[in-house]
Every structure is written in C-alpha cells, then in structure tokens.
Amino acid sequence: MTAHRRIDTSKVGEVTVVRFIDKKILDEASIQELGAELFGLVEQLNRKSILLNFADVEFLSSAALGKLITLDRKVKTAKGRLKMSNIRPEILEVFQITKLNKVFDIRGDEAEAIAAFQ
C-alpha cells in the first residue's frame, strides 16, 4: 500500500478513482508532491484506467495543469486511459481557455466517466 498525502484513491471495478485532498491546488511544493503521487499510479502501480474526480477542487494553477498534462502523456505512453470528471465551471473554463479540453477526456460526473471506461 502506497501512502498518499495529496490524493485519495479507490477502485471501482478496474478503474482507479482519484480524489484530491487539497481544495486549492496552487502551492508549488504540494503540486510537486501531487505530480509524484499521480505519476506513481502509472509508473509504480501500473494502473491502466484512471479517473480524476475534481469534486473537491475549487482552484488550480497553471503549474497543476502542467502535472495533469504530464500525467496524460504518461498514461498514453503506458497504453492506459485517463478521464476526468466533476469539474466545476470556473475550472472547466480554465481547461477551455488553454484548450486542454481537447487533450483531456472530460466527463460530467463519476458515473458517466466510469461507464465510459467500459
């Protein structure tokens, strides 16, 4: 069992569902830690189906976006699948402005995202 400080993970079938501990993802040190924990899911734990549930996230900075992009690339390289859900409108706008909504597979809620893995 790997101890995580920035994320909570659970399994729904084959899908690893990630919830974020921090409501505001902006502190540089926390973002580094968050990145390491997310990358570990792919690189150490070999998880192939990952859902990031943003329900608890109120704010994230561009440094956090960078970690999500790197995670997406790592998952694609490992031939896995990454989806995101429960993103509040303000953060969705950030994804739209940066056109990352074209890069990421974004779903409305967790159930819809889980279904999309099938």
């Binding site: 561009s62 440094a63 976006l65 950030v94 402005i97 940066t98 056109k99 074209k102 890069v103």
Partner: peptide, 18 residues
C-alpha cells in the same frame, strides 16, 4: 501560444494566457 496544436501538450507556459 500554448493553444497551438504542437504546443498543447507542453506542460508549461499557460500563466500569461490565463
């Protein structure tokens, strides 16, 4: 421009645009 196709997946350079 971080929204150009070839730069979409570069992890940095979005602050000024935001």
């Amino acid at each position: 421009d971080c929204t150009r196709d070839e730069r979409l997946e570069v992890p940095s350079g979005r602050g000024v645009m935001l």
